[in-house]
Write a protein that binds this DNA or RNA. Structure first.
Lengths: 341, 341
DNA sequence: GAGAAAAATCGTAACGTTACGATTTTGCGG
DNA sequence: CCGCAAAATCGTAACGTTACGATTTTTCTC
């Protein structure tokens, strides 16, 4: 029955065992210059006294924190429907970091929060060994800043910066093309697009894919059918109501996320329109959310859990000094039809 | 144009300004014993050289980390539908911590992860100044451990431990009673309950409320109508299918979370039953998710955003030494009818 | 303008850890 | 049992910060 009175340190252990602090420290990390017998003795005492290394001391000394910061961008007020993406991503990150003594810690970024400020705090305060960053813009200042400092990071989403950096991305151009083409192939010719804020790289790529699909079908691009804005369910619902206000509502809506799709469906019903029948709603998701709705929505799917895994993987390899060319990956979405399964 | 070559420290500043490290340190925190003029000079230089305090050094010296750990329990595989609760909670936490130089960091806990291990790492490694913990059990060992160490924390959910501790909780007994009574008042007499794993305090309270409502209506408790298990959409869907396998399906299902409700609806449709008409699904949620579904589900609502705010508030006040009696709060749910709004 | 009080600044030690070179102990051939 | 290499252990310094008592400078009083 140990007392655990106050925290045990190397000093405590050294006194207890009549060894030097140095030897204790080395023994705990299986240093080759300490006798196996001593190692056993030290580890036993450490367990008995409940020793745990003081992370800030280790960090101060070594510069290593054992922490990975995950800065996740939530491009909407957390109003109505919580965004489940983050849990899926973290699950993937955790899966990759399993057993690696890196701990992921998550911070949420919104449109209001100054992302650069957060990044600076983390880098300058040495709060993490690496950063996983989402919500990239073409000329992302946070990315630029980290590149300048040579701080290890990986982004979810590309930038247009000249200097290459590790990234993982879903092919949003493809996804939007897929979704739009699917709608067109179902005979829907007035296809609307509900898109994220225009500043995001993500948004531009989606717009490009959407326009390409329209062009291929020989349909003129109509800016009135494109909405840029927050990605909350409430915002999407509003946008959908607005789209359907006139006498000529769209016959399909291509959505940027599952939450957006839920909002769009609600907006349609507000106008007395039936999703799937009157207006086809095509979702883009990283979870299986859309398949649970009624009717199940056709969805451009790319697993967020896998995304998390790869992001963490790239970061780990970046920390190991892997060349940046190996740390860039574009994943394709697959169109999951909305049929009842 | 500053060079930012490598990190600026107090030493750097001191040399640059020909002051002592002590004075610089004090100036930066507006110490009363340093000349206002000097303070200005120091701060200017700090800004110019991009000085930021090294958090691990501060932590080592002071014992303060400026970090609040949020350990969020996700009682299901992150399979199908991501859980949006966490974003809502964090939003609330951030709202409370705004401007307080505490940073919340989130870690996810699952049934497989050893929560005690995580807590120990955080406490012993001095990784945070306080912990917000969810997924409590009646004899929660993590809580007991933190109480023993006198480590500041607050739980989302109560325990049955003798020693009092700060907590915030939704009245789950009431919520389940509300939901069940609502179903009964609609003439549904075979009410099923899909509940979390029995180990959670949460689960027991819900079961109690459910049974009380049944008893008040003079209906016998039928264990076959109660499911304990994971709270994922897939698990809930399975459970619902099983419940509706016999020739006498329930006429209502009381769900523990929004994700569970979504799964239940899908399970019903799998069996050719229409949620809301054939079987009433009553949800329990902290976001407005249920109101977006078709048909909108009646829901026992208590804001998760507010929950986050209060959890952070209690923790802040606990750190300030507030008496534990002031740091316990039970919030009631309100039944939101499922009508189209 | 001397002396004392007040204001401003400084130096040292410590937080717990690890890196590195120095020192002691052990094992072994002769 | 000596000498010497190898194995094991040790001491010191440093990471960047803050607390505290000591010291210097300024200001005020008579």
């Amino acid at each position: 029955m140990s007392r655990h009175a106050s925290k045990a340190t190397l000093k405590t252990l050294a006194q207890e065992l009549e060894l030097s602090i140095t030897t204790v420290s080395r023994a705990l990390k299986d240093g080759p210059e300490v006798r196996p017998e001593t190692i056993a003795r030290v580890k036993q005492a450490a367990a008995r006294l409940g020793y745990a290394p003081d992370r800030s001391a280790v960090n101060l000394r070594t510069g290593r924190t054992g922490t990975i910061a995950v800065l996740f961008f939530v491009p909407h007020a957390y109003d109505d429907v919580g965004d489940g993406s983050i849990t899926a991503i973290i699950e993937g990150v955790c899966r990759r970091l399993e057993g690696l003594d890196y701990t992921p810690v998550v911070q949420l970024l919104t449109l209001e929060v100054d992302g650069l400020e957060r990044v600076r705090r983390i880098v300058e305060g040495k709060l993490a060994d690496g950063i996983i960053l989402s919500g990239t813009t073409p000329q992302d200042e946070r990315v630029r800043w980290m590149l300048e400092r040579r701080f290890p990071f990986v982004t979810f989403g590309r930038t247009e910066l000249f200097t290459p950096h590790p990234w993982y991305d879903v092919d949003n151009e493809l996804a939007a093309h897929q979704a739009t083409a699917h709608a067109l192939s179902e005979g829907r010719r007035r296809v609307a697009l509900i898109n994220p804020p225009e500043t995001l790289t993500f948004a531009r790529q989606r717009l490009a894919g959407y326009r390409r699909a329209l062009a291929e079908a020989g349909i003129a691009y109509d800016p009135a059918l494109v909405v840029h804005g927050g990605l909350g369910a409430g915002e999407s619902r509003e946008a959908t109501r607005a789209l359907c206000a006139g006498e000529d509502p769209p016959s399909a809506i291509v959505c940027a996320t599952g939450v957006v799709a839920i909002g769009a469906c609600a907006g349609l019903r507000d106008r007395g329109l039936e999703p799937g029948r009157d207006v086809l709603v095509v979702s883009r998701d990283g979870t299986r959310m859309a398949s649970y709705l009624e009717p199940p929505l056709p969805t451009c799917f790319a697993s967020l859990s896998d995304t998390g895994w790869h992001l963490a993987d790239f970061l780990m390899r970046a920390l190991d000094g892997a060349p940046v060319e190996d740390l860039q990956m574009l994943v394709e979405t697959t169109l999951v039809p909305g049929d009842r399964r």
